[in-house]
């Protein structure tokens, strides 16, 4: 019988992520854990994938944070997605030929790198794994829709509070511990690129959110101090994260 605790360290958190939204038999889990893989370490801002690349790897974030970003001709950058430990970073290259955005390390990261061709063979042989890939992609798309709403229609205070809530629950669901324990991994300028605000406006909004008691700052970073207050400010509903799966 396959025991997830016996999975290679680089694979255990990937399995935890897939199991957070999908049912996989012990045979399916064992097949994933047995995939050949390598560990890669990158520094903050190192590129994992570049727009225009043709990728033959499926990197999974083992530790640290990463982000997807797109840049206008004029150099304006928007971070369009934040990836947390356990997240597969490029399922889409199994189905699409060309990478359509840049993927970079936000913090120092460890990647578990699987060959797409190896993973593709599993997907073709095991319907539950194929379904888990689909569910993962669908939930990422749902998060993207929520970000459109967040940046388009929520004021700065609610927008920032919402991002804190989302990262907190996503981290909890993969067993990483939430933002009440870990500090917010994004810098003020990165938050600005996520939220579509100027960095100075982000700083002002952080201070306002701190005054409500929802977050607290110390020398090492920003943490959630009062989750219920934060949820209230953000008017946060976790429905779009599909935490009721599987």
């Amino acid at each position: 019988m396959f025991d997830r605790d016996m999975a290679p360290p680089g694979m255990a958190i990937f399995l935890a992520k897939l199991l957070s939204h999908s049912l996989l038999s012990t045979e399916d889990q064992a097949a994933i854990a047995a995939l050949p893989h390598q560990t890669r370490r990158l520094e903050p801002n190192d590129y994992i994938l570049r727009e225009g690349d043709r990728s033959d790897i499926c990197p999974v974030l083992r530790s640290g944070f990463a982000y997807r970003q797109k840049i206008t001709e004029g150099g304006g950058r928007e971070i369009v997605s934040i990836k947390i430990p356990g997240d597969p970073l490029d399922f889409q290259s199994m189905y699409l030929r060309t990478v359509d955005h840049n993927l970079q390390a936000l913090t120092a990261v460890e990647l578990t790198v699987i060959m797409i061709s190896d993973f593709e063979r599993l997907v073709q042989a095991r319907p539950a794994i194929a379904r888990a890939v689909m569910v993962d992609i669908l939930i990422e798309a749902s998060i993207g829709r929520e970000w459109l709403l967040n940046n388009g229609r929520r004021n700065a205070l609610a927008r920032l509070a919402h991002l804190f809530c989302e990262l907190h629950y996503r981290l909890l669901d993969t067993g990483s511990g939430g933002l009440d324990i870990h500090k917010m991994p994004l810098t003020q300028e990165q938050l600005a690129d996520v939220l579509g605000l100027t960095p100075v406006h982000v700083n002002r909004t952080l201070k306002a959110l701190e005054r409500t008691g929802a977050i607290a700052r110390d020398g090492r970073g920003i943490r959630i101090a009062d989750l219920q207050s934060l949820i209230g400010t953000a008017e946060f509903s976790d429905l779009y994260l599909h935490r009721d799966q599987p």
């Binding site: 004021n155 700065a156 605000l197 100027t198 406006h201």
Partner: peptide
């Protein structure tokens, strides 16, 4: 220009 952008952002926000 950044001051104008920041002011615009504050006005749009609230």
């Amino acid at each position: 220009l950044e001051a104008v952008r920041y002011g615009g952002s504050l006005l749009a926000d609230d």
